[in-house]
Design a protein around this nucleic acid. Sequence first.
DNA 1: CAATGATGGACACTGCTACTATCCAAAGTC
DNA 2: GACTTTGGATAGTAGCAGTGTCCATCATTG
Lengths: 215, 215
Amino acid sequence: MRVSELAVRSDVTIASVKYYIRIGLLHPGVAQSATRAEYDDSHLERVRLIRTLVDVGGLSIERISEVVAALDNPPASRHELLGTAHEVLRDRDRPPASASAQRLVDGVVPACLPSAADHGNPGRSPATLTLDQAITVAESSGWPITAETLTCWGEAMRAVAEVDVVADLADASPAQALRYAIIGNVVTDPILLALRRVAQERLSSERLGGVTAPP
Amino acid sequence: MRVSELAVRSDVTIASVKYYIRIGLLHPGVAQSATRAEYDDSHLERVRLIRTLVDVGGLSIERISEVVAALDNPPASRHELLGTAHEVLRDRDRPPASASAQRLVDGVVPACLPSAADHGNPGRSPATLTLDQAITVAESSGWPITAETLTCWGEAMRAVAEVDVVADLADASPAQALRYAIIGNVVTDPILLALRRVAQERLSSERLGGVTAPP
DNA sequence: CAATGATGGACACTGCTACTATCCAAAGTC
DNA sequence: GACTTTGGATAGTAGCAGTGTCCATCATTG
């Protein structure tokens, strides 16, 4: 297909396609002549990935470059796959984690989320680092998290992750699996948060005995 | 206190304080003379709220204006409180929900999140609308959600919301309760998502039998 | 009591991001 | 042969969230 078709099919302007190629997010088409190049499904898929990451995930172009780099050079082992996915999704410009947050995490997580990696020193994975920092931010916003709360949430998220991991493991190539892990989290995170709000409304209406629905 | 102190205590430059006042996010200090005004804890609290919403929630200044407007004019009834909180946190520029997503939500949510509001026609609350749209986006990103998945997630999020609602109801004035509902969601959403990732890593390492931890 | 320096108010300006627009010459199309 | 499309390059734009600068006032301090 030509640029115009790629642009229409991915719902993006030609100018944007050119832009993505220029900054290296998208590989150029195969040049047929000085004024013609051929684009294929890999281009279409890439542009759609970019748009999902921008529109749904709210990732910056810079972050997307990292995602793309990881996809073009995926980890060989299954074990590092999620780590890589979580690393690119991780918010890098957060203040460092407080000691109390790390202690809380160390105390609660192994108990409610047992893992084979608990033998020996597990180190701090991207996700654990993110958790440390998120709890630190909450603390400094005057919203301290108790061990009980975290335990309860951890158990709930284990149930969520059961579904996730099963879905992710079905796939074939490392690049595809990585793609799935990244897109899967990006598109389903908002669903989870929306469900949380729905649950809050319904629970609160039950507790208060009234009707929460708006006009 | 004077601007300089307010600026230091809220970790913001004087220029930013002036900016927030100029655009109406922050009420001016009480003028003592042409070159002196007195600021109090309400100013400090407001600036900290703004920064939390910007830094943690990633809200735009425009959205924060809505939050501030809601706080200055909170709903009188407890029942509308969460609805208002969810309305201001809701992403307004999403495509409309698909019929299939709405059907999915209607089929799953009442079953796993029973509510007093289910008598008669409940309408669509802000959170439900957000959920519809989030599922629609997932569908159109090639990530269809099954009823089983949604049910499982819904049950997990009910457990999460149990903790939330208890915390929110402890408070006094409508404005305070609204503030808590908004900040609470904003600062704890990232924790939940981080826990999800941690759970994924640990579960996957258990399934794969290896060690997921990075270097 | 004069020098110093913080304040309020107004307005212009900046830095960053993510595109858009324009131009051109070559190539394909009708 | 007129018209459209493309690739490549470069410059320009829109929006957001502040910053910088200026000035007249005013409080403080040596």
